[in-house]
Amino acid sequence: MDTSALTTLGHHLQSLRQARGLSLSQLASAAGIAKSNLSRLEQGGGNPTLDTLWRLAVQLHVPFGTLVAPINVPLGEEDGVQVRLIDQGQDTPQVDVYWMHCDAHTTRRAEAHTSGVREALTLISGALEAGPEDETVWLLPGQSLCFAADQPHLYRTHELAATLMLTITYDREKSAP
């Protein structure tokens, strides 16, 4: 992320944290990150990983898209993976749509999302193995997969890079305003 995007993310993160009445220490501890890293992130510094952003969103009880909505650039490249929020639904249940690119020979392990969250992905190009860690499926362009994302899951490429559209649907009761 560039400096402008980091500054925007930091201000938004700070306002979400304060709106929930959490101190830096409380949020950092709950998300499993150092307080100094959270402080630096809120000040527009640092280089947050996708996992860090996901953990912060979970602890703030907001969809990932709500945390990153003000940013319109890819969320950095982490271990060969780039993610960009395309659109964030305003209805219930909350539905977010992302563009995702995985370089060749990449494995991206994702922590379990909150209860009731589902992911649906459609492969645009390349080849991709995805799904819950013990039930992965190989996809070719045009093929889709839907699974419960409230368990650890992964995205894996081999010789070919992969580009996909990823839709995350949050639990209807937990995404209600």
Rank of each mutant, 00 (worst) to 15 (best):
N47L: 03
L13T: 08
G46C: 00
G89V: 02
N47E: 11
H105M: 11
R108C: 14
F64V: 08
V81N: 07
A19R: 13
V95M: 07
T136Q: 08
T136G: 05
V95H: 04
R20N: 13
L27I: 06
A110S: 15
H11N: 14
R109M: 09
D51R: 10
T157D: 04
L53K: 00
Q90P: 03
Y170E: 11
A5I: 02
I86Y: 10
K35I: 02
N47Y: 01
D103P: 08
G142S: 04
A31C: 02
L27P: 06
V97D: 09
W54G: 09
D134S: 09
H61V: 09
A5V: 01
V73M: 05
M165F: 12
T92D: 07
A120K: 14
I168S: 14
G10C: 02
M1E: 06
T114Y: 11
H105R: 13
T66Y: 03
S175R: 02
A127W: 08
T163Y: 02
V137M: 08
K174F: 07
Q26A: 15
E129W: 10
H158V: 11
R108E: 13
L60P: 03
V68P: 01
L121S: 10
H153S: 04
S29N: 14
L154Q: 11
S4H: 13
H105F: 12
A57Y: 00
R172F: 09
E135A: 12
S39R: 00
T169A: 12
D91N: 10
P74G: 01
A5F: 01
L166R: 09
P132E: 05
S4Q: 15
L128N: 13
T3V: 13
D79R: 13
L24E: 03
A162N: 08
Q151S: 12
W54Y: 09
L121Q: 12
A34M: 00
H153M: 02
P177T: 10
A69D: 11
L24A: 03
R156T: 14
R109H: 11
H12D: 03
D79T: 11
T7E: 10
P152I: 04
L13Q: 05
G80D: 09
V68M: 00
A34K: 04
